[in-house]
């Protein structure tokens, strides 16, 4: 039983688009909700309301940050679950045959009736897909919602894993990788879907899609055009058009991630004076260009407007 089938008729799995994932954890929560009543039920918790809650989850969402490269400082949310590998060592190390890979669709499952809870499969998995249920004394893992995707009692459009249904940004795509015409195969081909830790040799079925490159990353935005600090020039108060100018510029920059086109410049007071970043120049209408972060300089209503616009 723990021998892995040479090939499986279908290779069901997910493509996870890190470009769309917003790290809301809806997939993780809906996974827990479905599966605590599903094949591996219950997914127990220990000390759920205490200081250090623990429990079985099949899906975990990490958040990483890039520290170098073009996109330095970028946050990438990263859902992690069982990848239903083609060469799952978690299955072959199982001494009882409780772990198995289905020949029909490639889903890797644990039989809760025969698992002895030796934990060896969790040691063999490089992806941390298996979590031990301390209350039940057995190992549990993602079932690819096997009790949902074939479930005749729910409408066909909802026969997909709970995490896929729950994702509000469509970052999770479910399909058959054995079929080159399937949505997941096409998506993988089009966006260069990749394997996690390919050096493990486990050949994960699931693929990940890298976040798309940003056209103009924040670090190279012409900051002098983003933030404008209105100053009271001697006795002059802020003029109404300066307010409008700031609002227009901010809005425009947020929308296009780039400097406003030239045609808009004429509408902005003093916008014709191009200033290199790091320099501050006073212009006629009392508006100052600066590269300081907004919170440091915007006060009162200005900060409120900035927040409103950055929503």
């Amino acid at each position: 039983m723990t021998a892995v089938p040479d090939t499986t008729a279908k290779k069901l799995g997910l493509v996870i688009d890190l470009d769309s994932c917003v790290g809301c954890h809806a997939c993780a929560v809906s996974c827990k909700e479905w599966n605590t009543g599903g094949y591996s039920a219950p997914l127990t918790d220990q000390n759920p309301y205490g200081k250090e809650p623990d429990g079985v989850w099949f899906n975990r969402v990490h958040s990483y940050e890039t520290r170098s490269g073009k996109d330095a400082g970028r946050t990438v949310h990263f859902p992690r679950a069982c990848l239903h590998c083609e060469e799952p060592a978690c299955v072959t190390v199982c001494p009882t045959g409780a772990s198995f890979k289905r020949a029909e669709d490639g889903i890797v499952l644990v039989n809760p009736e025969t698992c002895i809870g030796c934990k060896l499969c969790s040691w063999a998995c490089p992806y941390g897909a298996r979590e031990y249920d301390a209350d039940d004394g057995i190992m549990k893992k993602c079932t690819l919602c096997v009790d949902r995707i074939y479930n005749q009692n729910i409408e066909p459009s909802r026969r997909e894993p709970a995490c896929v249904s729950a994702c509000p940004t469509n970052a999770r795509h479910f399909g058959d990788f054995a079929d080159p015409e399937s949505n997941v195969s096409k998506l993988t081909a089009a966006r260069g879907g990749y394997d996690l830790m390919p050096e493990s040799g486990y050949q994960p079925t699931w693929k990940y899609l890298l976040p798309r490159e940003r056209k103009a990353p924040a670090s190279v935005l012409p900051m002098d055009k983003v933030y404008r600090k209105p100053v009271r020039d001697e006795h002059k108060s802020r003029s109404a058009d300066a307010v409008a100018g700031v609002a227009t510029t901010l809005k425009h920059n947020r929308a296009t991630n780039a400097a406003p086109p030239d045609s808009d410049h004429s509408a902005l007071p003093g916008a014709n004076s191009q200033c290199p970043s790091g320099q501050s120049v006073n212009v006629a209408s009392g508006t100052q260009f600066t590269t300081e972060p907004p919170d440091a300089q915007l006060t009162g209503w200005w900060r409120w407007i900035d927040r409103l616009l950055s929503r």
């Binding site: 890190l18 990490h62 990483y64 940050e65 890039t66 520290r67 170098s68 490269g69 073009k70 996109d71 330095a72 970028r74 990438v76 990263f78 990749y194 394997d195 996690l196 990940y208 890298l210 976040p211």
Partner: peptide
């Protein structure tokens, strides 16, 4: 994570 394509993580 495969994110080495973006830089240090």
């Amino acid at each position: 994570t495969g994110l080495d394509a973006l830089g240090d993580i």
